[in-house]
């Protein structure tokens, strides 16, 4: 049977991708950001999964205003890195896992989450920056990836509560897959940031860290945080953090298992406009 062994959480700032692609990671501005991921790259090598279920959001790349799915699962065999207007990132194409993805889609829809199924889609920095942060610059990504896109661009985005419940449904779906697979679930985006208006540049270190504490130890309480608190405290784009709750909801303790082990925690300000947060939680 397939099993979720760990969850990874990280911001997915586009400028981080640019810094990697242009070889700027050792510059004084970027060094402290990338140092926070040294542990994680080694951890990835020591804990290589068979599949990554990667929760992220599309930033007006694959989805324009023509189509705005709240939850979209990528069931294709492969996904190309998108041209977001600066040319595609020079990173490997993303190999999917159509069998597991279709299985999860069927199971999760039967658990009353109305997913959109996507058989053709380019993936933007929301998906490729976390892969770069965790895997460096390999010729090919270490394993297949199932992209799971959440609408956090047009309000209302799904609630924290809904995302947390969806994570639980995804765990059940994974565990009902017959093949023995080691699956990691990643939640990406955040932390506090605002990219628009006179309030652009908002960062809330205290709130971010209190939220991280909650996500680790009391995820139900983190899931109960209403939208408006994210907007007011963590900036209009800080609301991306609801995606972390999908990954957290898929961990064993939420279904009555033991509490996860905190393998790594990192926080840094700034990367461009954004506070960078990062966690690794292992199921025991």
């Amino acid at each position: 049977m397939a099993k979720i062994t760990a969850s990874v959480y990280t911001s997915h700032v586009p400028a981080i991708g640019t810094a990697i692609d242009l070889g700027k990671t050792q510059e004084p501005y970027w060094q402290p950001v990338f140092q926070g991921y040294d542990f994680s790259k080694q951890w990835m090598k020591d804990n290589q999964p068979d599949v990554i279920f990667l929760v992220y959001n599309d930033h007006a790349t694959a989805f324009s205003l023509d189509l705005i799915p709240t939850f979209a699962i990528g069931t294709a065999a492969e996904f190309q890195p998108a041209d977001e207007g600066w040319g595609p990132r020079p990173v490997p194409k993303v190999i999917g896992h159509p069998e597991l993805a279709s299985h999860i889609a069927q199971s999760v829809i039967q658990q009353d989450f109305d997913l959109t199924i996507v058989n053709k889609m380019d993936v933007d920095h929301g998906l490729t920056v976390p892969l770069s942060l965790m895997c460096g610059q390999p010729q090919a990504w270490p394993c297949p990836v199932i992209p799971f896109a959440v609408n956090v661009v047009q309000y209302p985005v799904p609630s924290g509560q809904r995302c947390f419940a969806l994570g639980q449904a995804i765990r059940k779906a994974v565990e009902s897959f017959d093949q023995d697979l080691n699956v990691q679930i990643w939640g990406t985006g955040g932390m506090s940031h605002q990219l628009q208006g006179p309030r652009a540049g908002l960062i809330n270190r205290e709130w971010d860290n209190a939220w991280l504490d909650k996500l680790i130890a009391d995820p139900k309480a983190a899931a109960a945080v209403p939208h408006i608190d994210y907007v007011r405290e963590a900036g209009s784009e800080g609301i991306e953090l609801v995606m972390w709750l999908i990954a957290r909801g898929a961990m064993a303790d939420v279904a009555g298992g033991p509490a996860p082990k905190l393998a790594h925690r990192f926080y840094h300000v700034p990367a461009s406009n954004t506070a960078v947060g990062h966690l690794i939680l292992e199921n025991q």
Partner: peptide, 25 residues
């Protein structure tokens, strides 16, 4: 929306930080 408007920035060769900053004065 800023993620859409960012395409104008990309056309002009501007980063997200330059765009966000331009809205503050």
């Amino acid at each position: 929306n800023i993620y859409f408007l960012a395409k104008i920035g990309a056309t002009d060769g501007k980063s997200f930080q330059q765009m966000a900053g331009s809205m503050t004065g």
